[in-house]
Nucleic acid binder design. Structure first.
Lengths: 358, 358
DNA sequence: ACGATTGACGTTAACGTTATCGTTCGATAT
DNA sequence: ATATCGAACGATAACGTTAACGTCAATCGT
């Protein structure tokens, strides 16, 4: 016997006994937001230091009903997109004194629901969600609303329930992609659309609108659907390449699908960008690539995370405020996967039957 | 009056009252690891379902002394390397029923210490740390040992305190890089070494050893130091380019420094790989790049995270087991930043005075 | 038939902290 | 001098859950 206490660690009661004061006094000295004399406060703090006291976060949470923990749900943290968003979130939350509980939905809407319910049940103070729920009015969110859990949505827009939300101007993303390809002289332009989430729909919407402004319409033969990943981008591109008249350019709803599209083109013996231009969205190649290849639409991802966290912290502090929606502006990043169409093809512009030499 | 309880949520006491049983019975039914009749269990579970009961994690932790939370400390989650590791960690932890608290050291050793102490004090059940502590015997780790917090180190090797650890065979990384460049015919090979962490030291060690086996030694004029980031790689490369006889190839201790080196070469009017070959380590370009440029040494990063989590879970379940060390094998990924040296330079091989034409 | 055993549940007391109210004591106002 | 007040602290009771032990009836073996 001798050193009895070991498992439990030192508590405020230990400090209190050692100093001959009540535990309450120690608590006051440590939290510091209550009336206490300067002398005892210093004595308590020194003693705590000496004994190596660590406040028990769970006990504290139990009585204060504040855990100082918020949860984040991302489809896949290994995607650089979400990794960057998470970094921004972490940056702000830390300054605000919160810790971050990280959950993976693994691109599975059902799993996402499980994770969200778990976090909400964990007495987490708020949630940041990059949702993969299909468009519409998912019941999870209604449940969150009922439970009055502060939530900020990242990159997803649900018109029905007005949650605070941070996202890029997805219509603008589509417009910029279209503008870029049109400016290069393309007229026969295809689109690989993402899954039924707001980003994909809105990007297509903007893309189509911009084409229409130039007197073009989006041929239904020139639209294929993907699932925001490389494999589906490749499949979609294969379909597009089978069209009666091949497109000279493609806008893929995000970068992974664009990458798949590039693969498909190459496998078909086409050179990107000489035979066909490809542009994506999201700039996943990031800054650590000495020779970035993919032309894309870029927007500040870390900043997106920062804003999300800022909104959440505000929502936690003041639960009754009305939900705000922040929208970031995208920009074109022209790189090596887009170029002017071949002269022969460019001649056939405006739908005029081109007498291209061969 | 009316709907009184709202803030607090429903507790096992509510369920107990409603069913006319004791709270303990409810607890037993919910945790399920105690003797209870099938009938009452079902009644309890159904009632819990109806009332929307969520167990209070903090209260549970307080009494069981298990939080089912583990912490991870990474320098920067937005680096794809750590993002991938984190994904592997998350995968395994989730299956084991743990949640993950994510902390950033932001590449600052001092901040890292703060974060580690915070997590250890948070009654977290274990820690996974990708440490930026300088080589030696950092006191934080001694403290963790004293507090008996299970820890697994990722990618860092501290010979002094034998912590469980998962890392790539860094000596092998250096050897492979050297082999690749030697095989291509390079003889005048430079190295950009990382900061004073075990990966950098070991990679250099292996690199140098392999050169020596081929009868070459690492000219001190051909070694420069970086800090594992792009900017320092660029600076280091500029130094190396100022050498009396320029190297024909460079091994950078990691990919970001290699990227910086490529930039420096281009700014000096040199073509990579025609004028100079560059190889890195870590394969940060990942799989979502249609035209990966940087030759590098690769190893499975997600798997590294999985193993780390597996070791940690084992360490939590059985705190007394002796620390294991898992070492992954790297492989060469030859891409577009390395090539044979120009003929004129290749002729001067083996230090024999080359009678190169011109 | 009788003690022993077991299954199913209840009671009590903790876990470590803080909210809330109460107490003490000296200072201040009248 | 007395009432009033406020600063500094203590006592008590929660917060929601589970560990540990206690109880009681039904079952079992002999």
């Amino acid at each position: 016997m001798g050193s009895e206490r070991q498992k439990t660690g030192v508590t405020i009661v230990d400090i209190a006994r050692r100093l001959g004061v009540s535990p309450m006094t120690v608590s006051r000295a440590l939290t510091g937001n209550s009336e206490i004399s300067d002398g005892t406060r210093r004595r308590v703090l020194r003693c705590a230091q000496e004994l190596g006291y660590r406040p028990n976060r769970w006990a504290r949470s139990l009585v204060t009903k504040k855990s100082l923990i918020v949860g984040i749900v991302v489809p896949d943290i290994s995607h650089s997109y979400f990794a960057e968003v998470t970094r921004g979130v972490q940056e702000v939350l830390e300054k605000a004194g919160f810790s971050l509980l990280l959950c993976h939905s693994n691109l599975d809407p059902q799993k996402e629901i499980t994770e969200i319910d778990m976090l909400a049940g964990s007495r987490t103070e708020g949630l940041i969600i990059a949702s993969e729920q299909p468009e519409g009015s998912p019941k999870v969110f209604l449940r969150l609303r009922e439970q009055r859990v502060p939530v900020v949505l990242v990159d997803r827009f649900f018109p029905q329930h007005r949650f605070p939300c941070v996202r890029v101007d997805d219509i603008g993303v589509g417009r910029l992609a279209a503008s870029h390809l049109l400016d290069l002289g393309h007229r026969r332009i295809a689109h690989i659309q993402g899954p039924r989430l707001s980003p994909a729909s809105l990007r297509r919407k903007g893309f189509e609108a911009r084409l229409r402004e130039s007197g073009l319409s989006l041929d239904s033969e020139l639209v294929a659907a993907g699932r925001f990943d490389v494999a589906s981008g490749r499949e979609a591109m294969n379909k597009l390449l089978a069209a009666r008249r091949r497109p000279t350019a493609v806008f893929a709803g995000n970068d992974p699908m664009a990458v798949g599209a590039v693969y498909a083109c190459r496998e078909a013996g086409l050179s990107v960008p000489h035979d066909i231009s490809v542009i994506g969205a999201g700039n996943i190649e990031g800054e650590c690539n000495p020779s970035p290849f993919l032309s894309t639409i870029d927007w500040p991802r870390v900043e997106l995370g920062r804003i999300a966290a800022t909104l959440l912290v505000a929502g936690i502090a003041n639960p009754e405020q009305r939900p705000r929606e922040e929208i970031l502006q995208p920009r074109v990043l022209a790189r090596q996967s887009t170029a002017r169409p071949r002269p022969s093809e460019a001649l056939s512009r405006s739908g005029v039957a081109g007498r291209g030499n061969r």
